[in-house]
Design a protein around this nucleic acid. Sequence first.
DNA 1: CGGGTCGTTGAGTGGGGTCAACACGGGTGG
DNA 2: CCACCCGTGTTGACCCCACTCAACGACCCG
Lengths: 264, 264
Amino acid sequence: MLTEAARVFLQRLERFGTLGAADKQALQVLVQHPAVHEAKTDVFHEGDERRELHIVLSGFFCRYRLLADGSRQILAILLPGDLCDPNLFSKQPYDFSVGALVLGRTAALSRLPLHDLFRRPGVARAFASTRHFDDALSREWLVNIGRRSSEQRILRLFSELTWRLEALGLLTGNVVTLPLLQADLADAVGLTHVHLCRTLKQLQTGGLIRPERGRIVLHDVAGLRKAVGVWPSYLAGLISVAPPPQAPEAPRRQLASAVEPLPI
Amino acid sequence: MLTEAARVFLQRLERFGTLGAADKQALQVLVQHPAVHEAKTDVFHEGDERRELHIVLSGFFCRYRLLADGSRQILAILLPGDLCDPNLFSKQPYDFSVGALVLGRTAALSRLPLHDLFRRPGVARAFASTRHFDDALSREWLVNIGRRSSEQRILRLFSELTWRLEALGLLTGNVVTLPLLQADLADAVGLTHVHLCRTLKQLQTGGLIRPERGRIVLHDVAGLRKAVGVWPSYLAGLISVAPPPQAPEAPRRQLASAVEPLPI
DNA sequence: CGGGTCGTTGAGTGGGGTCAACACGGGTGG
DNA sequence: CCACCCGTGTTGACCCCACTCAACGACCCG
């Protein structure tokens, strides 16, 4: 019999491929110590020693860092099944914090047995895929914050979340509600909450989203994804949906030629 | 007999701990296919299949992504010893490109044997540490670009590079020259090259840096680090530097030797 | 000498930040 | 049931940091 925690964990690991029965058996016994976290409380905090590996069971969590002047940068939004710490085997104290954005639950598993479990090819592959997905998202975020307008940043974040929720089976139909505060969104996309509010209002007139108190309703997921345009590369292997036709690749030899519009 | 390529690679892996003689023996035979890369040419390009694992031997490289509007976001700056691809075992095509910022060299090693080599605890530990360092840097960049002023972003990037160069033994005195174009710096910190130029000029009056054509001279590394203030958390375990035991002259020559190709 | 790359500078604009006040709603306690 | 409070969202006024467009300058190399 599978606890709910083990089920969420294994489902996540199997998202990109399948695990053998023995793999699953070995993994599920690790999942322990369920815990409830109120919104705005930390699972662990920057500077803490790395002990158990926490995984999200329900709710929305985030990795974040606080700066000396009190501002916060959210590094990633964590959904059910996600690992709070991308670095399974690091011995360093955490250099970031993880906190709950809304009421949610986590489980914890000890890291030590993982070392041995990595001998199993299926287990290693599953963690590697999860890891790659996590990394691809963080690259996406860096590009987003570094080079895109406030509207684009927000739309892309929403789009990302719709894909991830869909992969979890938490998106049915064309509507979804994100239980996120505007202040949280602002810290995720690198804006102030005031400007984020204004931009949301503008987007609202576009008809794709509706801000409500304490949440954002995306009432046209398909339209939102279309507005963002691309099939994000981080989805590779995540969702078994045929990608739409892609624009041709940029020429590859010289950076310069790749930056400029195609010649002729 | 250790090739230079193997030496650079092993030195990097040993930065956070030591490898057994057998580990090193097994790893060094993987290092092959040295290649020279002109500035502004790619090692690989977004969309390419992941084949060999490239490592930097000399020069400055970067991971980057190009956007539809032609703008570029640099995701990381790669120094000698760094792995071009943080995801050793991913099977997905690359979702970013790696290119040379100045003339430099790489080696390539096949990924397949790595799977087996990870059975060796020392090898697994070394790669995990390298990996953790890479991740910590990318978190740092996200915070930098998301929440800091242009001056701070630039100073922090410079400071980061001084620490990393020091760890490589490429920083001996209080002065170091970064062979980076202003356009590259701008794409690394998420600014336009015009504004970056102006900010550099302001910083110049602060007396810590001097922009020259095609490079930035940091002529007060200690002062720069002090201005940035903190001992960055990503350094944990990286540097056990006692002040250079015997200051050998000509610090600039050493950097130059890393930037310019040695006889091949 | 010419052309290409890289850097610098100016003028003008606007996106986004800051500060501050207020509105709204949901909880809590009297 | 109302009064109050606190967390959250909204709006206005103002400003300035950073972007844009454009031209020019400096340097390098053939």
